[in-house]
Measured scan of single mutants.
Amino acid sequence: MPVRRGHVAPQNTFLDTIIRKFEGQSRKFIIANARVENCAVIYCNDGFCELCGYSRAEVMQRPCTCDFLHGPRTQRRAAAQIAQALLGAEERKVEIAFYRKDGSCFLCLVDVVPVKNEDGAVIMFILNFEVVMEKDMVGSPAHDTNHRGPPTSWLAPGRAKTFRLKLPALLALTARESSVRSGGAGGAGAPGAVVVDVDLTPAAPSSESLALDEVTAMDNHVAGLGPAEERRALVGPGSPPRSAPGQLPSPRAHSLNPDASGSSCSLARTRSRESCASVRRASSADDIEAMRAGVLPPPPRHASTGAMHPLRSGLLNSTSDSDLVRYRTISKIPQITLNFVDLKGDPFLASPTSDREIIAPKIKERTHNVTEKVTQVLSLGADVLPEYKLQAPRIHRWTILHYSPFKAVWDWLILLLVIYTAVFTPYSAAFLLKETEEGPPATECGYACQPLAVVDLIVDIMFIVDILINFRTTYVNANEEVVSHPGRIAVHYFKGWFLIDMVAAIPFDLLI
């Protein structure tokens, strides 16, 4: 008679799926529990143990900040960024110097990925580790590398530091407007667009060049630039800015003055950032001319202004700041037409079709709590990747769950009947059967004279019903998954307890 339990259901295979997918890609990662103190490590794979030199037993239950890997060259700011990422709910990448158990130093890129439950609360953290440099290539500990984003994938490793954006290309926007319009339909740009040429040739750093990471940081200074100062900065030398009595002219307006920039070969870094931020506020060169004239017309309804409409929906549905990093990277690809469009465009503009998908598509409701890094690593669709929660398995109709209350009560009843059979069957065979043979035949009273025979008949009927119930009862397979398919249940029961239950259900007393 089957006594099969499996009270692990309803099970959740999400954690096993993450481990299996990460292991298949030869990654070095740990999984931490966000619900406990210090976000203790609950799993670390073999790749991480080989990377740091510690065994799994030495890593388990330690804080996922990996303070046991810190050393003299470990930056405090990087460690603080990892700790801050564990307090938030967004994906974050941090470069930090770690030390192995043998004392060797290596520069590592740590990717902190939160995993949320159905309520939107962070319950786990996945920390992925990628070695960037070994100890002989690690720089000085005073050099802070965590304020910069990861290198873009479309640049060669040897040319990542030679990417320079020439400031004269930004200063000569109005001069290039006529050349853009003359391109017409034969050019790649839309009317009114501004073409910015980027020099990728390796050259020595000069005062006129600005690194790509500095251009990325310009967006942080746009908020500090007032509207009046932006307007004066875009007017140009024809209309000098008016300053109040006793007030000095704005240095932001002076930063885009061609006369002032041409007199000296070098520009201050602050002026460069502010000038680029001011130019980015204009949607095209037409807006710059309109600002000089004193009238700013409404933005025209053409394809170039609607190019950012799908980007707005993608940004609203993005799951991490990696989408913004990807957008900034692609927006700086050289030799393309940049349409400086305000994100607050007309909502009635139709979304044009684009061959290049900048932001990841909208994630469906079932995966809105899973970050983009987890979705990318697992390579699963929205119909396959579940949320991290207890999910009731989908069972067929008329199927009994093996952990249901009805099955528990039924098993206790069958257990009592088995005990009765084990006690009274030998007793009936030894004593009652002998008395029946010696006594007179009682054929007239039937079952009324033999109450134990009636009980034995009921017990046999219950055993037959138990066999039928076992054909529709779920079970737990070797992978700790609840199986509810009727065919698989029948095959599993035939290979197991079916023969024993059938022999126990045969009414031998009635056959004798």
Rank of each mutant, 00 (worst) to 15 (best):
D119E: 10
P150Y: 07
V295Q: 15
K28D: 05
C66L: 14
G120V: 06
A303V: 07
K364E: 12
D102H: 01
L378T: 02
L349P: 09
E95V: 08
G262F: 04
Q11Y: 12
T305E: 14
S209T: 15
F22G: 07
M308F: 07
R292D: 03
S304I: 11
M137Q: 15
A360F: 03
R356W: 01
E214A: 05
V110S: 01
Q61K: 07
D213I: 03
Y43Q: 01
K344E: 12
S284V: 12
M308A: 11
A223K: 14
V36C: 15
T353L: 11
I358Y: 11
G236T: 08
P240N: 11
R56H: 01
T174Q: 14
L167H: 15
A228Q: 03
A142H: 05
F22V: 07
G314W: 05
D286Y: 08
V59N: 01
G71H: 01
F125W: 10
L107A: 14
Q11V: 13
K364V: 13
P258Q: 06
A175P: 14
S275Q: 09
G6M: 15
D213E: 06
S351D: 06
G186P: 08
D219P: 06
V132G: 15
L267P: 07
D213T: 14
P249W: 09
A142Y: 05
A79G: 05
A34T: 07
A79P: 01
L167P: 15
A244H: 14
P299G: 07
R181V: 09
N339C: 02
P245I: 07
K116M: 13
A80W: 10
A268Q: 15
T74F: 01
A172R: 13
G139D: 09
K362Y: 11
L51Q: 01
D199W: 01
V3E: 14
A97L: 14
T13Q: 12
P10M: 15
T337Q: 12
A193Q: 06
R148D: 07
I358K: 06
V374C: 01
A350S: 12
M291A: 15
D321Q: 11
G314F: 08
Q376W: 01
D286T: 06
V198P: 01
N12G: 15
V122L: 12
Q376L: 03
I359E: 05
R242Q: 13
I333L: 12
P205C: 06
C39N: 15
L86H: 01
G238P: 05
